[in-house]
Computed example of a mutant assay.
Amino acid sequence: MSPVSGVGRANFEAKDMIGRADIGSHAAPSKGSTSRLLLALLGLLGVLVFLGLGVWQLERRVWKLDLIARVDQRIHAPVVDAPGSQSWSGFSVPDYEYRHVRLAGRFQGGANTLVQAVTELGGGYWVLTPMLSDRGFTVLVNRGFVPQERKAEFERENGGFTAPSTVDGLLRISEPGGGFLRSNDPAANRWYSRDVDAIARARGLTDVAPYFVDAEASGADSWPRGGLTVVNFRNSHLVYALTWFALAVMLAIALGGPIVAGRRQQGAAR
């Protein structure tokens, strides 16, 4: 076999390099295609997630509208007796909250609890006073609001308030723990929420109902001022749903745009 000449060897090596470059040029698009496929799959997953969140918000909207209708019906329904101890074992928030109830008994003013609050009248306190009902159990009654500047006056005049009374109002559910970023401090007598269990323990109360009652409106010149309960359920679920659906559409367009452009280029090349 004759030895390969220098020129022949050079041609062979050049062809070999061209072949490797050609292989590399085919391999690179393969990696790029894989990346594009992964991105497309992630984008499709995002579209499905956005659609799912939109549907969930629509379901929440149906639930919220039903809640608003039920609460409105209860608020304007005829007054009924506050639930007694025989009902407490099966006490359920959806079944009882915002019922229009009546409670008769005697206030125990020596165990008042002032809970910090902000109302349409400014900053001050809710006045929660235990009432020993004529039926033998105790209920915390939110008698109303006292402004900050009237706190000392109220405490002087109402410290021994034990008048027999009949209270009509809305049944409310306990607010455990405290307010936003502020925890109740029973030892220091600082309260930021109407936590029935904690207040009952701090005041040494027994046989206490697992709810409190927001008293109805009192006289315009009397303190505490009742009837300031705000019944307002935020219902922005339709806006949220439309937002999620819009994001799904925008993401779908972003995914489909390059595909459509690519097919147009292929059609033009033909």
Rank of each mutant, 00 (worst) to 15 (best):
M17S: 07
F50I: 01
G43P: 11
R20L: 11
S35R: 14
S25Y: 10
G46P: 06
L51S: 05
S30C: 00
S35Y: 02
L45M: 13
L38R: 07
D22Q: 03
R36N: 05
G52S: 04
R36F: 12
L51D: 12
M17I: 14
A28F: 03
G52P: 02
S35G: 13
L39P: 10
T34V: 10
L41P: 09
L51G: 08
D22L: 08
L38D: 08
L45S: 15
L37K: 14
S35K: 04
V47R: 01
S35D: 14
S30L: 10
R20N: 11
L48S: 08
D22E: 12
K31R: 14
L42M: 14
V49P: 06
L45E: 04
L45W: 13
L38A: 03
P29A: 01
D22C: 09
L39H: 04
L42Y: 12
L53R: 15
A21P: 04
I18G: 14
P29R: 03
A28Y: 04
L48T: 03
L38M: 10
S30N: 10
L44T: 00
L53S: 07
M17E: 15
S35M: 13
S30A: 15
L48F: 00
I18S: 14
F50N: 01
S25K: 08
V47F: 06
G43R: 02
R36L: 10
S33G: 00
S33E: 07
L38W: 09
F50P: 02
V47N: 09
R20P: 03
G43W: 03
L51Q: 11
G19L: 15
L37H: 15
H26K: 02
A21W: 01
G24Q: 05
L48D: 06
I23L: 11
I23V: 15
L53F: 12
M17T: 15
S25P: 09
S30G: 11
L38C: 06
L37P: 13
G24H: 14
H26C: 04
V49Q: 09
G32V: 13
T34Q: 08
A27F: 08
G46S: 00
M17P: 04
I18W: 05
D22G: 11
S30D: 14
V47D: 04
S33F: 01
G32L: 14
G32Y: 10
G43D: 11
A21V: 05
G24C: 07
G46V: 03
H26G: 02
L39R: 11
D22K: 13
L38T: 08
S30Y: 12
S35F: 05
F50D: 07
F50Y: 08
L41I: 12
H26Y: 13
I23M: 14
A28E: 09
K31W: 09
G32H: 09
S33M: 05
P29N: 02
G46D: 05
R20I: 05
L42P: 00
A40G: 06
L42D: 11
V49R: 02
L51T: 06
L48K: 05
G52L: 00
A40L: 00
A21R: 08
H26A: 00
G19Y: 02
I23S: 09
L53N: 03
G24W: 09
A21C: 00
A28D: 00
K31L: 11
S35E: 05
L45A: 15
A21F: 01
